[in-house]
């Protein structure tokens, strides 16, 4: 089973790296769901519709703003970097105040 390295910028300017079991067809949101369930229950991120409409799951993905439910994760692209959007107040980890 392939592993996916995920670097997340968490609250308090902490960087944390997770090694996640990769399954084909995983979106970035699926990766975060896996981290919440199997690695760290305290990871915080927003989502709702899962189909690219509500935009609540928007975050910085490899340095660019993107919707985590639409962006596919790939173990061949090196480390996946996730961070909250730079603008506005961050509630926790990847969650912005809305």
């Amino acid at each position: 089973m392939k592993k996916l390295l995920v670097n997340i910028q968490r609250s308090g300017d902490q960087q944390e790296v997770f090694e996640v079991e990769y399954q084909p067809g995983m979106t970035v949101l699926d990766v975060l769901e896996r981290i919440y369930q199997k690695h760290d229950p305290s990871i915080a991120y927003r989502f709702s519709c899962r189909t690219g409409l509500c935009t609540t799951c928007m975050m910085m993905i490899n340095g660019k703003p993107g919707l985590s439910c639409l962006k596919m994760a790939s173990p061949d692209d090196g480390i996946l970097h996730l961070a909250p959007l730079p603008k506005g107040e961050t509630v926790k980890d990847l969650v912005k105040k809305m």
Partner: peptide, 12 residues
């Protein structure tokens, strides 16, 4: 319980 105006079935 989610983000106001963005977290229900209406969106879709």
């Amino acid at each position: 319980k989610g983000a106001v105006g963005k977290s229900g079935s209406t969106v879709g």
